[in-house]
Amino acid sequence: MSINEGCRRLWRLAFLFTIAAACIGGDKARADDLPLGICQSTAQGPAKFSTALWKGAEIAISEINAQGGVNGRKLKPVPVDVGNNDPAQARLSLNKAIDVDKIVTLVCWGTNVMVQNGPLIDEADIAAFTTSSGTGVVKASKLTQQLEAVTTLYCKVSAKHVKAQYPDVKTFAVLYVNYEFGIEMRDKCADEFGKLGITLVASEGHPNAPPDLRAQVTKLLEAKPDAIYLAPIGGGTVALGIRTARELGFDGLLVTYGAGDTPDIYNLKVAEKNFFFVGNEVPETAPDVVKQTTATYGGYTPFGYEYVWLAAKLIKEAGGSEISGKKLIAKLREEGDIQTPVNRYIFKADGNTSRPLAIFTIANGGRKLERILSASEIE
Rank of each mutant, 00 (worst) to 15 (best):
3 I>N: 05
10 L>K: 14
10 L>N: 13
14 A>S: 15
21 A>R: 11
24 I>H: 11
26 G>Q: 13
32 D>R: 15
38 I>V: 10
46 P>S: 13
48 K>Y: 12
54 W>H: 11
54 W>A: 12
56 G>C: 13
57 A>K: 07
57 A>F: 06
59 I>Q: 10
66 A>G: 01
74 K>S: 02
77 P>W: 01
87 P>G: 08
97 A>T: 06
103 I>S: 03
111 T>V: 05
111 T>R: 02
116 Q>M: 04
123 E>D: 07
125 D>P: 01
128 A>N: 00
129 F>T: 02
134 G>K: 01
144 T>H: 01
145 Q>D: 02
154 Y>N: 03
154 Y>F: 08
160 K>C: 06
163 K>V: 07
168 D>T: 13
175 L>G: 00
182 G>H: 01
185 M>R: 10
196 L>Y: 03
201 V>S: 14
212 D>M: 11
223 A>K: 14
229 Y>A: 10
231 A>D: 08
231 A>G: 09
240 L>R: 08
241 G>S: 03
244 T>F: 04
249 G>A: 06
267 N>K: 15
270 V>M: 09
272 E>G: 15
273 K>L: 12
287 P>E: 06
291 K>D: 05
294 T>E: 03
296 T>I: 13
296 T>M: 12
299 G>V: 04
314 L>Q: 01
316 K>Q: 13
329 I>P: 03
331 K>R: 15
341 P>T: 11
344 R>M: 10
345 Y>Q: 05
351 G>Y: 01
357 L>E: 03
359 I>F: 14
372 I>T: 11
374 S>C: 00
